[in-house]
Write a protein that binds this DNA or RNA. Structure first.
Lengths: 122, 122
DNA sequence: ATAAATAGGGATTAATTTATCACTATGTGA
DNA sequence: TCACATAGTGATAAATTAATCCCTATTTAT
């Protein structure tokens, strides 16, 4: 975690929402967990490019913020499963809408960024 | 702007969306502009705590990514107005949904973070 | 010539997030 | 004892975002 120096504006819903889900991997994590991938080791495999360390810290924050819960099974090797809380569930429609928007926008962004590189090199 | 070292995954809508709107002020900016506050000087006043410099850089990025357009009026003093492009408009429903979610979640987050501070101090 | 109002950018630092690497802990079975 | 599999953390570095301070440019009015 990190002790903020710049405070959150609780009256701005956008600010609040960004605080708990506005990071690189959290939407992906909630998405994967909603699809039934619940164990850290499976999440690491499912999400390309996330490292184990970052995964754990993001899971911890999501749990701390009350979007995820976890179950520890008394098995060997240890089995831990994360699940969406009611609050976490309430985000799913937003996540899928954002994902959809992003996919539609992707080609446009690709073109923009590729043109930018050409300008820089010429 | 900033020349990314870690590339964008264009196949992940969430990743793409976060790239263009996943920053502290962009949702707020799009929101205010959609409400009719279009000039930089008015946006600076409307958005508590944003500085002029940051505002300009965020507007520039939003324009670069094709979510905003701008009109320069030949007046003195100079008048510039930003407006939402079609792509920008398409984000409005998402923004209002996120804002709504954040406002509902705010009290919960406040309690969580306040409890955290008490633990640290005891 | 100078101040005022507006938009915008350069350079730098501070804040924050993400990545890397290497560790601990647990219980099992070779 | 030692390696394995799983979950998790500590310390640190690298990447990225945001904040600060101060400058330029334009045109009008004093």
């Amino acid at each position: 975690m990190y002790q903020r120096k710049i405070p959150i504006d609780y009256n701005c819903g956008l600010n609040v929402a960004m605080e708990v889900v506005g990071s690189k991997w959290k939407f992906c994590l909630l998405d994967e967990i909603s699809k039934g991938i619940k164990r850290p080791k499976d999440l690491v495999n499912a999400i390309t490019d996330i490292s184990k360390r970052v995964l754990q810290s993001q899971l911890k924050e999501l749990e701390f913020h009350g979007l995820l819960g976890k179950t520890v099974y008394n098995e060997i090797p240890l089995r831990v499963e994360y699940f969406l809380t009611e609050t976490g569930e309430s985000l799913l429609p937003l996540i899928s809408a954002i994902d959809k928007w992003g996919l539609e926008f992707a080609p446009q962004l690709k073109i923009i960024l590729e043109n930018q590189i050409i300008e820089v090199e010429s």
